[in-house]
Design a protein around this nucleic acid. Structure first.
Length: 399
DNA sequence: CGTATTTGACCAGCGC
DNA sequence: GCGCTGGTCAAATACG
């Protein structure tokens, strides 16, 4: 045990050195699984905003100059093609990948905790084509490195994009899947055969929508504000880094997340959220205010607390965290709106997976959210909100 | 002592 | 059918 800790420490040091040697340089993540290769790049942006939290683990947060993703996250028009694609294989962990070729910053600080995006290269458009068929039933998981396209779909649509592995599941949009974790818990209490039976039963259902993020960090389990319990760890094929499985500890909340590091860049943490929180975000308003203070200054100040919890949604809000995400399986759109309390809201009945709490009832529109003096204003600087809206317009104009 | 983590075992799905 | 892999369980262990 002690030896392992030492080894881990040594490994992290090596990783840190590696990161230092590559900072401000182009970062590539190359996935080589099965017969497929995917390459994503993060290039340093010359016009980024730094949001330096100066914490031990959560450090510099950078904003890419191009806000296109932010726009797509917050206020992507329902009918517009979604700029991200889901990549089921070769690495199912990278569930969502940006379609656009916008450049995002990579970390410029070795101790930074930044959320970098890795825009796809043009030559891979075939792999991330948003115009791929949404559903490919009866295909096998490993048959192809397919991309589940969410683009043409309306978030409100019940038509479901599905990976080859996943079964189309209309239930997601109907919030039926929220029952699954509870069912699972009930059956876990039963005998083993019962559990297995339940497992088999559940597997007939599609997995819940997933959203993946690539994060640059030296810690694996990023503090997103929710409480997670680790329930498993598996070695990842073709990667020296294991994949960890976490489950939200809140009773009745079946949200899961998986965390693994890129084998190519050990500082790239890939976090995939699956499911929907059935409870409010646990962070207090005061915390949020602490968080957003430096953001309002556009990174000029710092927030120093290594234990400070930054929820994923707020990563998005502040562009700290560029999601390689798109919709997966269930017409889930990226966060289209922010509710008045700062919680993300998905259009339709399907809320953004992992980001909780469906506040759709409370949300009316982006405009109202901006006007609202609730938590959103604590979280999202007016400038960013404005940028978000503007960027969306720009994005629409491009289409 | 309650909670969280670790880790080996197990199962389902899939490819061959 | 067999082997591989991803995902999950649950007992053991660690931790505060």
């Amino acid at each position: 045990m002690e030896k392992k800790i030492e080894e881990d420490h040594h490994q992290k040091q090596q990783q840190m050195e590696q990161l230092n040697s590559t900072k401000n340089t182009e970062t590539k993540i190359q996935h080589q699984e099965d017969q497929q290769q995917q390459m994503f790049q993060a290039t340093t942006s010359s016009h980024m905003a730094n949001l330096d939290t100066s914490s031990d683990h959560h450090h510099q947060l950078e904003l890419a100059g191009n806000n296109i993703n932010l726009a797509s996250i917050f206020d992507a028009p329902v009918s517009s093609p979604f700029p991200y694609s889901y990549l089921e294989d070769p690495d199912p962990f990278l569930d969502f990948l940006p379609q656009d070729h916008h450049q995002f910053s990579s970390s410029s600080n070795s101790s930074s905790f930044s959320f970098d995006a890795f825009p796809l290269q043009n030559n891979n458009t075939n792999l991330f084509n948003t115009d791929l068929p949404l559903s490919q039933p009866s295909t096998t998981k490993r048959a192809s490195s397919e991309v589940v396209n969410i683009a043409p779909m309306s978030p409100n649509s019940n038509s479901v994009s599905s990976s080859s592995k996943e079964v189309a599941n209309d239930n997601i949009d109907k919030n039926v899947t929220l029952k699954d974790p509870e069912e699972g818990e009930q059956e876990q209490k039963g005998t083993k055969p019962q559990r297995l039976k339940a497992k088999k039963k559940n597997q007939k259902k599609a997995r819940e929508a997933r959203v993946a993020f690539l994060t640059r960090s030296d810690i694996d389990n990023l503090d997103d504000g929710y409480r997670w319990r680790k329930y498993g760890q598996k070695a990842v094929k073709n990667s020296p880094y294991p994949r960890s499985y976490y489950r939200c500890t809140t009773v009745g909340c079946g949200v899961k997340k998986r965390v693994e590091r890129s084998s190519d860049d050990p500082y790239i943490v890939m976090t995939t959220y699956e499911g929907q929180h059935t409870h409010p975000f646990p962070m207090t308003r005061g915390h949020i205010a602490m968080l957003t203070s430096p953001i309002l200054d556009h990174g000029a100040t710092t927030t120093s607390s290594s234990s400070f919890a930054i929820p994923q949604p707020r990563y998005l809000l502040t562009q700290h965290h560029q999601p390689y995400s798109s919709m997966y399986n269930n017409s889930l759109s990226m966060i289209n709106r922010s509710s008045s309390d700062g919680t993300f809201v998905n259009p339709g009945s399907s809320s953004f997976p992992g980001f909780g709490y469906d506040m759709s009832q409370a949300s009316t529109s982006t405009t109202s959210a901006i006007r609202d003096h609730g938590l959103l204003q604590d979280i999202l600087p007016s400038q960013i909100r404005s940028d978000t809206t503007n960027t969306r317009t720009n994005q629409e104009d491009k289409k």
